[in-house]
Computed example of a mutant assay.
Amino acid sequence: MFVIRELLNRNDLIEWAITEGFREIIPATALHVTIGKFHDPNVGRQLVPAASDLTVRASQRRAVLNFGGIVVLAFSSAKLVRRHAEFRRAGMTWFYRDYTPHVSFALDGLDLRDIQPFDGRLRFGPEIFKPDPILDSLPTC
C-alpha cells in the first residue's frame, strides 16, 4: 500500500518543466509525493490518512535529480519527514537509507547541471492510501 499526496498545483510544475526544456513529462494526474509504502497491509490499517492539504513554501533550496532514469524535484518538508518517520515507527519498511520528499515529473535524459529547480510553492492534497499495483496483481495462495 502506498501513501501519497497528489500535487494540486501541477500546472505550475509542468509549465516550469517545459520552460526548462523537458519533453517527456509525466502525466499531470500522476504528479505526487510518496510518503511511504507498506508491504504488510495490516500496518497501513493502523494509521489514519491526514485529511488536510499541505503547502510547502516557495524555496530556492531545491534540487533536480535523476533517480534511475526518472527526473525528480527534491525539496525539504519537515512535516513530510515527520510523517514518514511515524510510518516507520508503525512498522513500514523503507528500502532506502534516507527519505527525501520529491515529485517525479519527467523521463528526459537532459543534462541537469544547467536546470534551475522549480522554486514556487508546492500544494499537496490530503493523504491517499493506495493499493500497491504490483502486490495486488499477484495471485493469492
Rank of each mutant, 00 (worst) to 15 (best):
Met1Arg: 00
Met1Phe: 01
Phe2Pro: 01
Val3Ala: 02
Val3Thr: 01
Leu7Arg: 12
Leu8Glu: 06
Arg10Pro: 00
Arg10Leu: 00
Asp12Met: 02
Asp12Asn: 05
Leu13Thr: 05
Ile18Asp: 07
Phe22Ala: 02
Arg23Gly: 02
Pro27Gln: 10
Pro27Glu: 13
Pro27Leu: 11
Ala28Trp: 00
Thr29His: 08
Thr29Asn: 06
Ala30Ser: 15
His32Ala: 03
Thr34Ala: 00
Thr34Trp: 09
Thr34Gly: 02
Ile35Ala: 04
Gly36Lys: 01
Phe38Ser: 02
Phe38Gly: 02
Asp40Ser: 10
Asn42Pro: 13
Val43Ala: 07
Val43Lys: 07
Val43Leu: 10
Gly44Ile: 01
Arg45Ala: 14
Gln46Glu: 12
Val48Arg: 03
Ala50Gly: 07
Ala51Gly: 11
Ala51Phe: 06
Ser52Asp: 15
Asp53Pro: 14
Asp53Ile: 15
Leu54Lys: 14
Val56Leu: 10
Arg57Pro: 08
Arg57Tyr: 08
Arg57His: 12
Arg57Gln: 12
Ala58Gly: 14
Ala58Ser: 13
Ala58Phe: 10
Ser59Met: 09
Arg62Ile: 10
Val64Gly: 06
Leu65Met: 15
Asn66Glu: 05
Asn66Trp: 06
Phe67Gln: 05
Gly69Ala: 11
Ile70His: 07
Val72Phe: 06
Val72Arg: 09
Val72Lys: 03
Leu73Glu: 06
Phe75Pro: 01
Phe75Asn: 00
Ser76Tyr: 02
Leu80Trp: 01
Leu80Pro: 04
Val81Ser: 05
Arg82Leu: 13
Arg82Ala: 12
His84Pro: 02
Ala85Trp: 05
Ala85Thr: 07
Glu86Trp: 13
Phe87Ser: 04
Arg88Trp: 10
Arg89Thr: 08
Ala90Val: 03
Ala90Trp: 00
Trp94Asp: 13
Phe95Gln: 11
Arg97Pro: 09
Tyr99Lys: 05
Pro101His: 11
His102Trp: 06
Val103His: 01
Val103Asn: 00
Val103Leu: 06
Val103Cys: 09
Val103Trp: 01
Ser104Glu: 14
Phe105Lys: 05
Ala106Gln: 08
Leu107Arg: 15
Gly109Tyr: 05
Leu110Gly: 06
Leu110Trp: 11
Asp111Gln: 09
Ile115Arg: 03
Ile115Glu: 03
Gln116Tyr: 11
Pro117Ile: 05
Pro117Asn: 06
Phe118Asn: 14
Phe118Gln: 03
Asp119Met: 10
Asp119Val: 08
Gly120His: 07
Arg121Trp: 00
Arg121Thr: 01
Arg123Gln: 07
Arg123Gly: 00
Gly125Asn: 00
Pro126Ser: 12
Pro126Met: 14
Pro126Glu: 11
Glu127Ser: 01
Ile128His: 13
Pro131Ser: 13
Leu135Gly: 04
Leu135Tyr: 02
Asp136Cys: 11
Ser137Ala: 15
Thr140Ala: 04
Thr140Glu: 08
Thr140Asn: 03
Thr140Cys: 04
Cys141Trp: 15
Cys141Tyr: 12
